[in-house]
C-alpha cells in the first residue's frame, strides 16, 4: 500500500492537540518539559476545560510555558507559584488551577511555599519537574542532585559532606495531611507518558472535589545540563534516577 493512501485525514490516529500553540518551544532538543506540556494540554483538551484552567509558570526553563499551552497563565516569582495558586483557586474555586515547577524552583527557593500550600490542603495541582539540576542557569547542583552526580557546581560529583544529601521532597509532601494524591511519574517512553497522562487527569479531577492538594512529580532529564544526548540522558535517568526516585503512587485517597 502506498504511503500516500495511508496519509489521509480519515486515517489520522494522532496529531498535536490544538491546546498547544504553534509556537516552537525554546527547550533543548529532547527536553521533557515539552513532553509534559503536551500531556497537560491533552488532558485539558480531553476534559474540555481550556477556558476553566489557570496555570502558574515558574522561574526556570519552563518560565515561558505560557507561550505554549493556550490557557490563562500567571508567572510567579521564583518558588512562589503555590502562593499565587492558593490565591487564584480561593478566589476562583470553579477554575482548575495548577503550578508547573522545576526542582530548583520547588525544592530549593520555594520549599516553604509548596510545603505550606500542601499542608493547608489547597485544592490545586502541583506538577513538579525533577531533572536533578538547575537547567536554566547552566546546570548547577539542585537539592535533588544525586550523590556523585557531576554538575557545574559539583564538578567532581556531589559530595554529602560538602553538599548535603539529595532531597526526596515528594516523600515529605506525601506525609502532609493536606495532600490527597502524591505520585511520581516519568515521560521517557510511551508507556510512561500514557501513565503520566492518567495521573495528571486524576490530579485535575481531584482539584474540583475538595479533597486537598494533588502533587505529580515527573522524574526528568536535562540533557544539556547533564551533557548527554537526549537518548543517553533517558538511559542515565533509568539507571541512576529511578533507583533513588522510585516511580509510583506515594498516596492516593
Amino acid at each position: 500500500m502506498d504511503v500516500n493512501d495511508i496519509i489521509r485525514p480519515e486515517n489520522m490516529v494522532y496529531a498535536k492537540t490544538p491546546i498547544l500553540t504553534d509556537t516552537v518551544m525554546h527547550y533543548c532538543p529532547g527536553c521533557p518539559h515539552g513532553t509534559v506540556h503536551k500531556v497537560i494540554a491533552e488532558v485539558i483538551e480531553e476534559m474540555g476545560i481550556q477556558d476553566k484552567t489557570i496555570g502558574i509558570s515558574p522561574v526556570g526553563c519552563a518560565v515561558l510555558a505560557y507561550n505554549y499551552i493556550d490557557i490563562d497563565w500567571e508567572q510567579a516569582a521564583h518558588g512562589r507559584a503555590p502562593a499565587l495558586a492558593t490565591a487564584t483557586k480561593r478566589l476562583n474555586p470553579d477554575k482548575y488551577v495548577f503550578t508547573y515547577q522545576g526542582d530548583g524552583d520547588l525544592a530549593s527557593i520555594g520549599t516553604a511555599e509548596v510545603m505550606h500550600a500542601c499542608n493547608r490542603g489547597e485544592n490545586i495541582v502541583v506538577i513538579f519537574i525533577n531533572n536533578a539540576i538547575y537547567g536554566m542557569t547552566g546546570g548547577q547542583m539542585a537539592p535533588t542532585t544525586l550523590l556523585g552526580q557531576k554538575t557545574a557546581t559539583t564538578p567532581y560529583g556531589r559530595d554529602a559532606k560538602l553538599n548535603g544529601y539529595p532531597l526526596k521532597i515528594t516523600e515529605l509532601i506525601a506525609q502532609l495531611e493536606g495532600t490527597c494524591y502524591v505520585t511520581r511519574q516519568s515521560a521517557h517512553n510511551p508507556a510512561a507518558v500514557r501513565k503520566l497522562k492518567k495521573a495528571v487527569r486524576k490530579a485535575f479531577e481531584n482539584s474540583m472535589m475538595d479533597k486537598g492538594t494533588s502533587f505529580v512529580e515527573v522524574v526528568s532529564t536535562c540533557n544539556s545540563g547533564w551533557k548527554l544526548s537526549p537518548v543517553q540522558a533517558n538511559k542515565w535517568m533509568e539507571e541512576n534516577m529511578f533507583p533513588f526516585y522510585q516511580l509510583g503512587d506515594l498516596k492516593d485517597r
Binding site: 493512501d5 489520522m12 521533557p32 503536551k38 510511551p190
Partner: peptide, 18 residues
C-alpha cells in the same frame, strides 16, 4: 502505533493508520 508521536517532546509527529 503512535509511540513516536507520544514521546515527541515537540509534538511534531502526526500518525496515520489503516
Amino acid at each position: 502505533c503512535t509511540n513516536c508521536a507520544t514521546v515527541c517532546p515537540d509534538a511534531v509527529i502526526t500518525v496515520y493508520r489503516v
